[in-house]
């Protein structure tokens, strides 16, 4: 597989993405340089594509990914991997707000911290954050797992649906309708299976597993007590 270099600079992103798509069709391994934190880089990547972004990227990088392997050297802006259905995205530094929003499959691995509402409304897949996840992460997440190794910010797992938020480290505060469960050995083994390929298994971790208390799933408007937790 040959390496193909795409230079972004101040070019139109549509033109850059078309060049990336053409290189994907040829089966090239792609190195994207001079990224300048531009938005919408590598959106809609096909299965099997392999991209490395030098430096930092802006909003929606790797969005709607259908199976590509993407690595960002430094930071990503808002909504990295939004709506992705498969593939693997690695962020070397910080991931901005709404990392993995509404994703439907695949894995996002953030080596630094993630901003607010990490995994908001996600439907499936896994988000692994080596640092801390921001305010209201997991908000209304339907399914899948958010795994934070460095703690969580305020209002963690607020209004969660059927997803799970796993946190090792401190949680600044819990969101509305969160239940903290003691994970079983089998469940920890499942999480370790996700962490193993990333080299992040550590048996000494003290996990907090958050799931929905289900009091908001079929909200009874005459019983507003659930909201009083806010």
């Amino acid at each position: 597989m040959s390496e193909y270099v795409v230079d972004v600079g101040q070019r139109h992103i549509r033109e850059v993405n078309e060049e990336i798509q053409e290189a994907c069709k040829r089966g090239d391994k792609i190195r994207v340089v001079n990224t300048l934190s531009r938005h919408n880089l590598g959106v809609g990547l096909p299965p099997g594509a392999d991209l490395y972004f030098e430096g930092s990227v802006g909003y929606y990088c790797g969005g709607l990914n259908t199976g590509a392997r993407v690595e960002v050297e430094r930071n990503a802006g808002w909504a990295v991997g939004e709506g992705m259905s498969d593939g693997h995205i690695t962020i070397g530094g910080y991931a901005g707000m709404s990392c993995g929003a509404a994703m439907m499959g695949g894995t996002i691995h953030v080596k630094g911290d993630a901003g607010p509402r990490c995994g908001v409304a996600m439907k499936a897949g896994n988000i692994v954050v080596e640092g801390k996840i921001g305010y209201q992460s997991g908000f209304m997440a339907h399914s899948g797992r958010i795994i934070a190794l460095g703690g969580a910010g305020e209002s963690c797992a607020d209004a969660l649906w059927a997803a799970e938020v796993w946190v090792a480290g401190d949680v600044d505060s819990y969101g509305v309708d969160v239940q903290i469960k003691e994970p079983t050995a089998e469940e920890v083994a499942e999480v370790d299976e996700i962490l193993a390929p990333l080299g992040l298994v550590d048996s000494s971790r003290n996990w907090r597993k958050m799931v929905s208390g289900e009091r908001l799933w079929y909200f009874e408007s005459r019983d507003a007590s659930a909201w009083l937790m806010i």
Partner: peptide
Amino acid sequence: AEESDVINYDGP
């Protein structure tokens, strides 16, 4: 334009 440490004031 060069790579820099970027501070994201993302919290509430």
